Simulated scan of single mutants.
Amino acid sequence: MALTPPLKKKLLTAAVLAGVLLLAWWLWRTLSDDGPGEGFVSGNGRIEATEIDVATKLPGRIEEVLVSEGEFVKAGQPLARMQIDTLQAQREEAEAGRQQALHAAAAAEAQVALRRSDVAAAQALIVQRDAELDAAQRRLARSETLAKEGAASGQELDDDRARVRGAEAALAATRAQATAAEAAVKAAEAQVVGARSSVEAAAATVARIEADLADSVLKAPRRGRVQVRVAQPGEVLGAGGRVLNLLDLSDVYMTFFVPETAAGRIALGTEVRIVLDTAPDYAIPARVSFVASQAQFTPKTVETASERQKLMFRVRAQIPPELLQQYIEQVKTGVPGVAWVKLDPDAAWPASLATVVAQD
């Protein structure tokens, strides 16, 4: 059956159109960026950094804020000062209490010396009383011998016996005084211990207030950039009130999610390339520093309609601190991008990810 010219023309047009569509599909497949392909997996995320809140230790009023938003600060650099009038008054009071405790300790030590001299005097008196008793006993012995021979009267014998009893009583009293003096020494020594403890307590109070005075100057715990000034001079904050928020730009990373089928092949230290939306021609080298041990449903920020039922694992890619140091002025957080993870150690990075940010 012969084809009419109009039908031939239609078939020829359809064939040309099909050829054009086939060529367009082939070009799209060839030139479109499907990623590195086998041996790699990717996830989208944003650049993040460790945030540090600089807060007050004690309640008080802000005297001065020394830095501005966006400013780079060094570790230990003063960032803000709190009013310290009350703390200074407390320190003066505590110092006066410490001096008072020192005087009390000195007085207690003097009392110990005094009580020890009383003990020495009592012991010397004991020796004296003991000698007097010995003399009285010897005299009584002679009187008893003479009385038996009729050479001494009974009155003399009675007097000598009374002297012995008096000497014994005096010796007992002196020994009691010595015991009391020794007890007084122990009591005085206990007072010294208490006084010295009071001195230590007062010194600790002074040290605590001095520590609070030192903490009234808010310092940067590490190097970073001021992100937000939360409070202004003149504001009264409670304990733990935030004054500034810092970003530690030596600890920058991207958190992203990968399918459960790929998570088991990712180990700590695995190579990563991060491509930011703002710089698509450059790949930032990184390493996997964290892989979640439990899966979770895909977060809405990264899911598509076909992925909502899939379980994903959270992964963190850490950018080397030495690289961050080179580009510290350009580091920005919140920038979106894509992280490519090399699952196969033997796979070669494709040309699209080969242009890596220079690292000395």
Rank of each mutant, 00 (worst) to 15 (best):
T4E: 08
P6N: 07
A14D: 05
A14C: 09
A18I: 09
V20G: 02
A24P: 05
W26D: 09
T30C: 11
D34E: 14
E38Q: 13
F40Y: 10
I47T: 07
E51N: 15
G60T: 06
E69A: 14
G70W: 02
Q77N: 06
M82L: 13
Q88H: 12
A89W: 09
E92P: 03
A94G: 04
A96C: 06
Q99R: 15
H103V: 15
Q111G: 10
V112A: 03
S117V: 08
A135F: 13
Q137W: 12
R139Y: 08
L140Y: 12
L146D: 07
E149H: 14
E149L: 13
L157K: 12
A162Y: 11
R163A: 09
L171M: 14
A173V: 10
R175C: 11
A181W: 07
V185K: 02
A188V: 04
Q191N: 09
A204N: 08
I209C: 04
A211G: 12
K219V: 14
P221H: 01
R229H: 11
V230A: 06
V236D: 04
G241I: 07
G241T: 03
L247I: 14
L247N: 00
S250W: 05
V252K: 00
T255K: 03
T261C: 10
R265V: 06
R265Y: 08
I266D: 02
L268K: 09
A279I: 13
P285I: 04
R287P: 00
F290M: 06
Q294G: 10
F297V: 07
T298V: 11
T304D: 10
Q309R: 14
L311K: 12
A317Y: 06
P321H: 08
V331Y: 02
K332P: 01
T333A: 04
G337T: 09
A339F: 05
W340M: 03
K342M: 11
K342V: 10
A354T: 02
T355E: 14
T355M: 12
V357Q: 10
D360N: 14
